[in-house]
Protein backbone atom coordinates (compact mmCIF):
# COMPACT_ATOMS: atom_id res chain seq x y z
CA UNK A 1 0.00 0.00 0.00
CA UNK A 2 1.44 3.32 -0.99
CA UNK A 3 0.62 6.99 -1.40
CA UNK A 4 -2.66 8.33 -0.11
CA UNK A 5 -3.50 5.05 1.59
CA UNK A 6 -0.75 5.83 4.07
CA UNK A 7 -2.91 8.74 5.12
CA UNK A 8 -4.71 6.84 7.76
CA UNK A 9 -8.45 6.77 7.48
CA UNK A 10 -10.85 4.72 9.60
CA UNK A 11 -11.90 2.76 6.52
CA UNK A 12 -8.63 0.90 6.87
CA UNK A 13 -9.94 -0.74 10.02
CA UNK A 14 -11.95 -3.42 8.24
CA UNK A 15 -8.97 -4.22 6.05
CA UNK A 16 -6.88 -4.34 9.22
CA UNK A 17 -9.30 -6.86 10.71
CA UNK A 18 -9.10 -8.99 7.60
CA UNK A 19 -5.31 -8.98 7.40
CA UNK A 20 -5.52 -7.07 4.13
CA UNK A 21 -2.92 -4.39 4.97
CA UNK A 22 0.79 -4.40 4.27
CA UNK A 23 3.13 -4.43 7.25
CA UNK A 24 3.82 -0.69 7.25
CA UNK A 25 0.18 0.33 7.10
CA UNK A 26 -0.72 -2.27 9.66
CA UNK A 27 1.84 -0.85 12.06
CA UNK A 28 0.55 2.66 11.48
CA UNK A 29 -3.04 1.55 12.14
CA UNK A 30 -1.99 -0.16 15.35
CA UNK A 31 -0.21 2.98 16.49
CA UNK A 32 -3.31 5.01 15.82
CA UNK A 33 -5.47 2.47 17.61
CA UNK A 34 -3.37 2.69 20.73
CA UNK A 35 -3.72 6.47 20.72
CA UNK A 36 -7.33 6.94 19.67
CA UNK A 37 -10.41 5.79 21.62
CA UNK A 38 -12.55 6.68 18.60
CA UNK A 39 -10.60 4.33 16.40
CA UNK A 40 -10.85 1.59 18.98
CA UNK A 41 -14.57 2.12 19.20
CA UNK A 42 -14.96 1.96 15.44
CA UNK A 43 -12.83 -1.17 15.29
CA UNK A 44 -15.10 -2.78 17.87
CA UNK A 45 -18.13 -1.83 15.78
CA UNK A 46 -16.92 -3.33 12.55
CA UNK A 47 -15.58 -6.39 14.36
CA UNK A 48 -19.02 -7.01 15.84
CA UNK A 49 -20.66 -6.63 12.44
CA UNK A 50 -18.14 -8.93 10.80
CA UNK A 51 -18.58 -11.55 13.52
CA UNK A 52 -22.36 -11.34 13.24
CA UNK A 53 -22.29 -12.11 9.52
CA UNK A 54 -19.65 -14.80 9.88
CA UNK A 55 -21.76 -16.47 12.55
CA UNK A 56 -24.64 -16.92 10.13
CA UNK A 57 -25.15 -20.62 9.49
CA UNK A 58 -24.81 -22.12 6.05
CA UNK A 59 -28.18 -23.06 4.66
CA UNK A 60 -29.77 -26.13 3.18
CA UNK A 61 -32.02 -25.65 0.19
CA UNK A 62 -35.58 -26.97 0.55
CA UNK A 63 -36.29 -30.65 -0.04
CA UNK A 64 -36.47 -31.61 -3.67
CA UNK A 65 -34.70 -28.46 -4.86
CA UNK A 66 -31.56 -30.18 -6.11
CA UNK A 67 -33.48 -32.81 -8.02
CA UNK A 68 -35.41 -30.09 -9.82
CA UNK A 69 -32.27 -28.08 -10.47
CA UNK A 70 -30.46 -31.07 -11.94
CA UNK A 71 -33.35 -31.69 -14.29
CA UNK A 72 -33.67 -28.03 -15.28
CA UNK A 73 -29.96 -27.36 -15.70
CA UNK A 74 -29.43 -30.54 -17.71
CA UNK A 75 -32.15 -29.39 -20.08
CA UNK A 76 -31.26 -25.72 -20.22
CA UNK A 77 -27.58 -25.66 -20.93
CA UNK A 78 -27.69 -24.36 -24.49
CA UNK A 79 -29.18 -20.94 -23.89
CA UNK A 80 -26.15 -19.44 -22.18
CA UNK A 81 -22.97 -19.31 -24.20
CA UNK A 82 -20.42 -18.41 -21.58
CA UNK A 83 -19.90 -17.48 -18.00
CA UNK A 84 -20.78 -13.83 -17.51
CA UNK A 85 -21.69 -13.47 -21.15
CA UNK A 86 -25.38 -13.06 -21.73
CA UNK A 87 -27.49 -11.06 -19.30
CA UNK A 88 -28.93 -13.36 -16.74
CA UNK A 89 -32.56 -14.16 -17.06
CA UNK A 90 -33.01 -16.80 -14.42
CA UNK A 91 -34.74 -19.87 -15.73
CA UNK A 92 -37.77 -20.22 -13.53
CA UNK A 93 -37.84 -23.21 -11.30
CA UNK A 94 -40.55 -25.41 -12.64
CA UNK A 95 -42.42 -26.41 -9.48
CA UNK A 96 -42.69 -22.95 -7.97
CA UNK A 97 -43.69 -21.25 -11.20
CA UNK A 98 -45.94 -24.15 -12.04
CA UNK A 99 -47.92 -23.44 -8.90
CA UNK A 100 -48.81 -20.07 -10.35
CA UNK A 101 -49.62 -21.53 -13.75
CA UNK A 102 -51.80 -24.23 -12.26
CA UNK A 103 -53.70 -21.61 -10.32
CA UNK A 104 -54.29 -19.57 -13.48
CA UNK A 105 -55.37 -22.64 -15.44
CA UNK A 106 -57.71 -23.67 -12.66
CA UNK A 107 -59.28 -20.22 -12.52
CA UNK A 108 -59.66 -20.09 -16.30
CA UNK A 109 -61.14 -23.58 -16.40
CA UNK A 110 -63.63 -22.70 -13.68
CA UNK A 111 -64.79 -19.63 -15.59
CA UNK A 112 -65.11 -21.54 -18.87
CA UNK A 113 -66.99 -24.35 -17.17
CA UNK A 114 -69.39 -21.85 -15.67
CA UNK A 115 -70.06 -20.19 -19.01
CA UNK A 116 -70.60 -23.56 -20.71
CA UNK A 117 -72.96 -24.62 -17.98
CA UNK A 118 -75.06 -21.49 -18.37
CA UNK A 119 -75.12 -21.47 -22.16
CA UNK A 120 -75.10 -25.09 -23.26
CA UNK A 121 -76.79 -27.17 -20.63
CA UNK A 122 -80.57 -27.66 -20.84
CA UNK A 123 -82.46 -25.29 -18.63
CA UNK A 124 -84.81 -26.67 -16.12
CA UNK A 125 -86.87 -24.20 -14.30
CA UNK A 126 -86.52 -24.37 -10.62
CA UNK A 127 -88.87 -21.43 -10.06
CA UNK A 128 -91.80 -22.14 -7.81
CA UNK A 129 -94.59 -21.64 -8.53
CA UNK A 130 -94.24 -22.57 -12.17
CA UNK A 131 -94.56 -19.43 -14.27
CA UNK A 132 -96.40 -21.08 -17.17
CA UNK A 133 -99.01 -22.56 -14.91
CA UNK A 134 -99.60 -19.28 -13.13
CA UNK A 135 -99.98 -17.40 -16.40
CA UNK A 136 -102.38 -20.02 -17.75
CA UNK A 137 -104.46 -19.99 -14.66
CA UNK A 138 -104.57 -16.31 -13.89
CA UNK A 139 -103.20 -14.29 -16.79
CA UNK A 140 -106.41 -13.70 -18.67
CA UNK A 141 -108.31 -12.84 -15.61
CA UNK A 142 -105.62 -10.50 -14.51
CA UNK A 143 -105.29 -8.70 -17.79
CA UNK A 144 -107.31 -5.72 -18.62
CA UNK A 145 -109.13 -7.22 -21.53
CA UNK A 146 -109.04 -10.94 -20.87
CA UNK A 147 -107.77 -12.06 -24.29
CA UNK A 148 -104.92 -14.47 -24.96
CA UNK A 149 -102.58 -11.81 -26.27
CA UNK A 150 -102.80 -9.65 -23.23
CA UNK A 151 -102.62 -12.69 -21.01
CA UNK A 152 -99.01 -11.68 -20.68
CA UNK A 153 -99.91 -8.38 -19.17
CA UNK A 154 -99.04 -7.94 -15.54
CA UNK A 155 -101.26 -9.82 -13.22
CA UNK A 156 -101.14 -7.38 -10.41
CA UNK A 157 -101.97 -3.70 -10.39
CA UNK A 158 -99.54 -1.44 -12.18
CA UNK A 159 -98.17 1.00 -9.78
CA UNK A 160 -96.25 3.27 -12.07
CA UNK A 161 -98.19 3.92 -15.23
CA UNK A 162 -101.84 3.87 -14.22
CA UNK A 163 -103.35 6.12 -11.75
Amino acid sequence: MTGPERELVPELLSAYLGGELDAATRAAVEARLSASPEWREELAEVRAARDAVRALPSLDAPDGFWDRVRTNVAGAGDEVDAVDAAPAVPVPLAPRRRRHRVAWFAAAAAIIAGVVAVVALPHRSSVRPDVTAVVSAHGAQGSDVGDPVTMLAPVGPLGGFRR
Binding site: A61, V69, R96
Partner: peptide, 22 residues
Protein backbone atom coordinates in the same frame (compact mmCIF):
# COMPACT_ATOMS: atom_id res chain seq x y z
CA UNK B 1 -35.38 -14.97 0.47
CA UNK B 2 -35.69 -18.56 -0.58
CA UNK B 3 -37.47 -18.06 -3.89
CA UNK B 4 -34.85 -15.72 -5.29
CA UNK B 5 -32.04 -17.81 -3.84
CA UNK B 6 -33.33 -20.87 -5.69
CA UNK B 7 -33.50 -18.96 -8.97
CA UNK B 8 -30.00 -17.58 -8.47
CA UNK B 9 -28.55 -21.01 -7.77
CA UNK B 10 -30.20 -22.56 -10.78
CA UNK B 11 -29.03 -19.80 -13.10
CA UNK B 12 -25.55 -19.96 -11.59
CA UNK B 13 -25.38 -23.69 -12.25
CA UNK B 14 -26.41 -23.15 -15.85
CA UNK B 15 -23.49 -20.75 -16.20
CA UNK B 16 -21.23 -23.16 -14.37
CA UNK B 17 -22.20 -25.89 -16.80
CA UNK B 18 -21.34 -23.72 -19.78
CA UNK B 19 -18.21 -22.28 -18.24
CA UNK B 20 -16.57 -25.34 -16.75
CA UNK B 21 -14.48 -25.99 -19.84
CA UNK B 22 -12.76 -22.66 -19.24
Amino acid sequence: NDDDAQDLVQEALIRVRKGLER
